[in-house]
Amino acid sequence: MMMMLTSLARLRAAGAYAAPAALVLLLAPVCAHAGRPMTVDDAAIAAPGQCQLETYAQHAQHYDEYWATPACNVGGDWELAVGGAWADDTAGPHSRTVHFGRVQAKTVFKPLETDGWGLGLVLADQFRTGRSGDGDLSANVPLSFSLRGDAVLVHVNLGVMRPADVRRSSATWGSGAEFKLGERDSLTAEVYGQQRAGSRYQFGLAHALIPDHLQIDATWGRRLARGAVEQVVTVGLVLQSN
């Protein structure tokens, strides 16, 4: 697993962006990102030749993020994504803007089928612009299950992350489900966490404006701890090619 993480650093030279700041690591997903509106990943990739663009805004107390992440299936077996973002930090006497991003490669060993299961692998590197050090490397294994003819999809994640500023690997985990509410609407619920960084839970709604082409979604979540606040709200848009 660590050999996979080390190999991700080489992807940065191909033109990836930046890694999140320390606050982003607390608020942003600690597992690989499946697709809006979930944080927990699934065992599925785009079809060969298909691309999609995910954009979303995330708001937390004194902190806002704005993401744009295009992803395409390359060669049929791998889905590659390069995301860029900026974050406005208004905590303290002076506000500041941080630019960062993510490069990700995802493959599926067993495709998820209706009323079946699927297994995949996600490798990612996040690093901050203007810094020459290593990024935050991660590897994640998503396991997905289809129930009741795809009416319910359950995802379980297990992985490892090595933040650049810590130089020590931490386990990551997540579990979530998607529930179809109709032809165009779905509800998501999930919980995820990182060793030594705590856990979070999140609920989401998605509505297909144009089925299989254009989706709008939103999430609400907070830290899973007694007395914790740290609420995070996101609003996103997904555009998918034919």
Rank of each mutant, 00 (worst) to 15 (best):
A171L: 10
R184P: 05
V74K: 02
T234Q: 14
L26A: 13
D88K: 13
V156I: 13
M1W: 09
G92Y: 06
E113S: 14
A44M: 10
W173S: 00
G176W: 00
G83A: 13
A57R: 13
Q194R: 15
W86T: 10
V30E: 08
L53H: 01
A18R: 00
Q231R: 15
G118P: 01
S186H: 10
S146I: 04
R128W: 07
W86V: 12
R168F: 09
L209I: 15
V152L: 14
L158V: 08
G101E: 05
C31R: 13
A225V: 07
R96E: 12
Q126H: 09
V152K: 08
H207D: 08
V40Y: 05
A171W: 09
W67R: 12
G35Q: 02
M161E: 11
E113C: 07
L205I: 15
A32M: 05
P163S: 06
Q61K: 11
L121G: 05
A14D: 00
S170M: 07
L8W: 02
R226V: 15
R12L: 05
G227L: 09
D185T: 12
Y17H: 13
G159S: 06
L119C: 03
P142R: 04
A21C: 10
T172N: 06
L209A: 12
A91K: 09
A228C: 13
A124Y: 01
R196S: 11
Y201F: 11
Q50F: 03
G221A: 11
D77S: 03
R184A: 14
Q194M: 13
A218N: 12
A206L: 12
A13F: 00
A13N: 08
K180R: 14
G118E: 00
L26M: 10
D185H: 05
V24G: 05
S95F: 06
L112Q: 02
Q240K: 15
Q202F: 01
E113Q: 14
V82H: 00
R200G: 01
D136H: 15
S186D: 07
D165L: 12
